[in-house]
Nucleic acid binder design. Structure first.
Length: 302
DNA sequence: AATGGTCAAGTCAGC
DNA sequence: GCTGACTTGACCATT
């Protein structure tokens, strides 16, 4: 099991998601920003390797405005050397990579223009991973989308739009259960209809479900991943105590995470910690995981 | 140097 | 109908 965290590292004093306002867009500004972002991404990945954090979500802001009409710059070619070098670092160290486009990305919107823009944004994500020369185990995760007062139609539209995607996107796209509109059962339907793997979000599942016990739900989601997809990815978080339901915790709840590990025992998956203090909690999670697995080994011996 | 309004994009819930 | 939540901050004009 590889354990990781998303997008930001708070120990290193750099960021890989620098952006700027659209109004101040210039090619120079873009190049300078992306160069800084890539440099930081490389530093974060090196930090992660040294700390046994072998799963990382790359920020969608790596290349600001990449899919926006304002951007006419051929960033993919310009930065191909850097992207390929970072890709080598990733492969050499067996790091798992995911990306998670924002909530604006909707394959199932009734508005074709929104779908069109969404596909452009997804293609941008795929371009990054392709330029890093990563295989199909590097994933792009999205939610199903809106309901629009017509669930069945909205689900059907997802399938239709998914089927029309380029093969390089289909190779990478996975769908994640959310905590408001589409629970695991809907994602499973999409899998049976379109073949899309289901990324299981344990925390969302606890909030929105049809009463499936966690272990059972996890086992279901895991079956949707094939050999080429790599080990199933799982998102983990816990509740920010006293805050709105669904808000991510600020720091890892050790006991809850140990309980999660018990639930996931024997299942080969990679776990993304969606916890606010990022690598600090992830480091603790790795410790807990190593402790738990050595305890289990001892148990198996005796 | 510190402050606070504003930021590319969509949808839904709650007032 | 409008605002805030979602990932939550950081940019940047103004003082």
């Amino acid at each position: 099991m590889r354990i990781g965290y998303p997008c930001l590292n708070r120990t290193l004093d750099c960021r890989n998601n620098h952006s700027f306002k659209l109004a101040s867009y210039t090619e120079e500004r873009l190049v300078e920003t992306v160069a800084a972002n890539l440099k930081c991404l490389e530093a974060i990945l090196k930090f992660n390797v040294e700390n046994s954090l072998l799963f990382f979500r790359i920020s969608s802001d790596l290349i600001p405005f990449a899919s926006h009409p304002v951007c006419r710059f051929d960033w993919a070619n310009y930065f191909t050397g850097d992207l390929s070098r970072i890709g080598s670092l990733i492969k050499r160290n067996g790091i798992r990579i995911s990306m998670h486009p924002d909530q604006f990305i909707l394959l199932n919107s009734p508005d074709d223009r929104i779908v069109e823009r969404s596909v452009l944004e997804l293609e941008y994500h795929a371009e990054i991973l392709d330029r890093m020369k990563l295989d199909g185990t590097a994933k792009i995760q999205i939610h199903v989308g809106g309901v629009y007062g017509e669930r069945e139609q909205a689900l059907k539209r997802f399938v239709q739009r998914y089927e029309k995607l380029s093969s390089r996107l289909k190779k990478r796209l996975v769908v994640e259960n959310d905590d408001r509109l589409y629970p695991l059962a809907d994602c499973m339907d999409l899998h049976f209809q379109a073949g899309v793997p289901v990324l299981f979000d344990m925390f969302h599942h606890c909030i929105l479900n049809f009463g499936e016990p966690a272990r059972e739900a996890l086992e279901l989601a895991v079956t949707t991943w094939s050999e080429q997809d790599g080990p199933p990815m799982v998102d983990y978080s816990s509740q920010f105590a006293g805050e709105r339901k669904g808000r991510h915790a600020e720091s890892l709840d050790n006991d809850d995470f140990a309980h999660f590990l018990e639930t996931a025992q024997g299942i080969d998956c990679d776990v993304m910690l969606e916890i606010k203090d990022k690598e600090r909690s992830a480091l603790r999670a790795v410790e807990i995981y190593q402790r738990e697995s050595s305890r289990q080994k001892k148990k198996a011996k005796s």
